[in-house]
Design a protein around this nucleic acid. Sequence first.
DNA 1: AAATAAGTGGACATTGCGTCCGCTTTGGGG
DNA 2: CCCCAAAGCGGACGCAATGTCCACTTATTT
Lengths: 204, 204
Amino acid sequence: MESRTELLTGRPVEEAGRPRERADAARNRAKVLAAAAELFAARDPRGVTMDDIAKAAGVGRGTLYRRYPDTVSIAQALLDEHERVLQERLLRGDPPLGPGAPPADRLAAFYAAMVELLDEHISLVLGAEQGAARYATGAYGFWRAHVRVLLAEAAIPEPDALADILLAPLGPDVYAEQRRRGLTPEQITAALTRLAHGIVERAG
Amino acid sequence: MESRTELLTGRPVEEAGRPRERADAARNRAKVLAAAAELFAARDPRGVTMDDIAKAAGVGRGTLYRRYPDTVSIAQALLDEHERVLQERLLRGDPPLGPGAPPADRLAAFYAAMVELLDEHISLVLGAEQGAARYATGAYGFWRAHVRVLLAEAAIPEPDALADILLAPLGPDVYAEQRRRGLTPEQITAALTRLAHGIVERAG
DNA sequence: AAATAAGTGGACATTGCGTCCGCTTTGGGG
DNA sequence: CCCCAAAGCGGACGCAATGTCCACTTATTT
């Protein structure tokens, strides 16, 4: 896991103990993130290379690698903030997204929020597309734990297997393909809502 | 799409018009497929390279590229046969997999059959892992059409969006991750069965 | 057995990766 | 204010894999 960073700037939150970040480092981080965001948005995010980003940001390869091991982690850094906001809402927000509503409604609300996030940041999400690495992500672990809890709360059998199954439709490539074929976010959300209610309970 | 091939040998079915395949070509095709199957099974299928396969098969790079543009298409060629068998059973086999059973049962049977296929050929399936390219596959189109028909038959709203959603848990990476974490095929099948019945109808 | 078309294979140019290390910049201490 | 240790920088380098090209070999046809 990366260390905690600030919203938008990606600057590390200051913590006691370790030396403050140098000015040139901060400048370059900002340049890198800005350039990367533009690149991911401008073309097929999966085709963006470390070289591209270094060139666009006007920094050397070495500088880039100092902080990010690959393009995926850059996209993730950009995405991280938005995911954190959603996580916060899940844990402490108002129902039905936050605690208090019946599990089926919370699951449906989660789906709706995720679709919103996917759609808004589709280029980043695709840039962060990682195949199998996706499951090692902190974010994925969080989503799974959340869904797992909802299922357990509703006393559904096989909550572990179902959690991954219910998260699968939120994979970036699935969503991108659906949009590419002309489905609207509304249609997708509607389908996922049906899924949520179908699994957790027959909504009354 | 590739032209139709025979079970196991991958040899093109003879068709009028185009010249018959030469003996050395057939020999090499067999060598390539055998070597590739072994490689995919022996190590991480995603790490297998065209060079590896060429070396293992004892043929030159050029020969390999003549027939297959990349490792993914080789894995797919190996997989193709098995998928075709399942497709046949879906279209003309006995219920509940084939026609005749209620949609919910057919969907559950489809899930069970797919889990079986995934589990048996997990290395190939991972070798054929293609990210977004998966959706351009003939096989994926077939599965989607099948699920779409079952949903339509049951008069479910948003069958298009739901078809992709219901297929997402069958993605190779999802399945591999579940197995990696210790879930058994039986548990996964049970969860998918619940999914099928939850979506299509409240099973009686 | 000659003609010809199909098939072969390795050398090559290219691209992206990741590392390494000499140089530059920064900022705290004297 | 200036010095200098340490943090940061960046381009050159070696590597691995890709995909193409074409002179050569092998199979098939007559």
